[in-house]
């Protein structure tokens, strides 16, 4: 059995110690998780969505549990760019793992302004462009479902991103996700992350009202995992592989074998989302599990596993 397994990842030029990140909106600004894990042990960390101005977020209830999943409609509640720079960047600067800032906005100018302000910050490895959030009235998913808008927003942000890598987070509920993925890559995206949540609704049969104050929310958790694996494989085969762009796979990952499914399907790295709410330290267990799997299967370098799906 090969004990010296290399699970480090070259993610579009960014060196990740391992392929496991925590997903945006499920791990705060990093300091929240410090009681439960050594954040530096992660391959990378993705902040919650940062917008130009602070946002209060939606009214409550903001979440509801579903069968093997949950809906959330937080509405980009965040402290805004200025407070992020002042209060949270100093915390992120101390991290040795790769830090990605998730950027959101109602207009392209807002995305550009956030990227521009953060482009020179050494603490940040790259940006994740949130063009797929289902829980806001303007922006979010309204950009991510239209290839022309994805092109426009990706190239606008790319222009001001300097050395930072630009990852575009894709919405799953589109006619052909590869069309959107291609639009992002052709406009300069260095990586793709997928999938964001599915727009969904839970109805209270007593009141005949939606349970969430926002009426709809984004479905996440184990319930969406098989769809996410399928979409990662599709985007890997149809867009990413040919253009040499890495895919960050996410959607319902709770265990190492969940993560390995995504990697076999074509993800170079994965992100843990909803599972952080239940087991805040589970990303570390997943890293250990991936190492163990590679050792057992005599995989010397995790690269061998990426997109190794057998279909013949």
């Amino acid at each position: 059995m090969n004990k010296d397994v290399d699970i480090s990842v070259n993610f579009s030029g960014i060196g990740l110690a391992n392929p496991v990140l925590t997903a945006s909106g499920t791990s705060g600004y990093a300091d929240e998780l410090a009681d439960f894990m050594d954040v530096n042990s992660l391959g990378g960390f993705i902040t919650k969505s940062i917008t130009l101005k602070p946002r209060k977020g939606n009214a409550t209830p903001r979440i509801v549990e579903t069968d093997s999943g949950m809906l959330n409609a937080i509405g980009w509640a965040n402290i805004g760019l200025d407070a992020f720079v002042e209060e949270k960047l100093p915390v992120l600067e101390k991290l040795s793992c790769a830090v990605f800032v998730n950027i959101a906005g109602e207009t392209i100018d807002e995305y550009v302004a956030v990227a521009q302000r953060l482009a020179a910050e050494k603490a940040i490895a790259g940006f994740e462009l949130n063009v797929s959030c289902p829980n806001v009235e303007k922006g979010g998913i309204s950009f991510g479902t239209d290839p022309a808008q994805v092109t426009e927003i990706t190239s606008a942000v790319k222009k001001v991103s300097g050395e930072k890598i630009l990852m575009v987070k894709l919405a799953p509920a589109v006619t052909d996700i590869s069309v959107i993925a291609r639009a992002a890559v052709e406009a300069g995206a260095n990586a793709l992350s997928l999938i964001n949540t599915f727009t969904a609704m839970v109805v209270d049969v007593e009141t005949r009202r939606p349970v969430l104050a926002n009426k709809t929310g984004g479905l996440s958790g184990p319930a969406i995992k098989p769809i996410a694996v399928y979409l990662v494989n599709k985007v890997y085969n149809e867009v990413a592989k040919g253009s040499g762009i890495p895919v960050l796979g996410l959607g319902g990952i709770r265990t190492a074998s969940d993560a390995i499914e995504f990697i076999i399907a074509g993800a170079s790295a994965v992100a843990v989302g909803t599972a952080n709410f239940i087991e805040p330290g589970c990303a570390i267990k997943i890293i250990e599990g991936i190492k163990k799997y590679c050792a057992c299967k005599e995989i010397a370098n995790i690269k061998e596993l990426v997109g190794s799906l057998e279909v013949s």
Partner: peptide, 26 residues
């Protein structure tokens, strides 16, 4: 309703007054 209890899910918002102002915060 809360998913995590540790501030990361941001779902358990309580609307609060800001002292000396008409504004509210979650």
């Amino acid at each position: 309703r809360m998913a995590c209890g540790i501030r990361v899910c941001q779902s358990c918002a309580v609307e609060c007054r800001v002292a000396g102002s008409n504004e509210t915060v979650y």
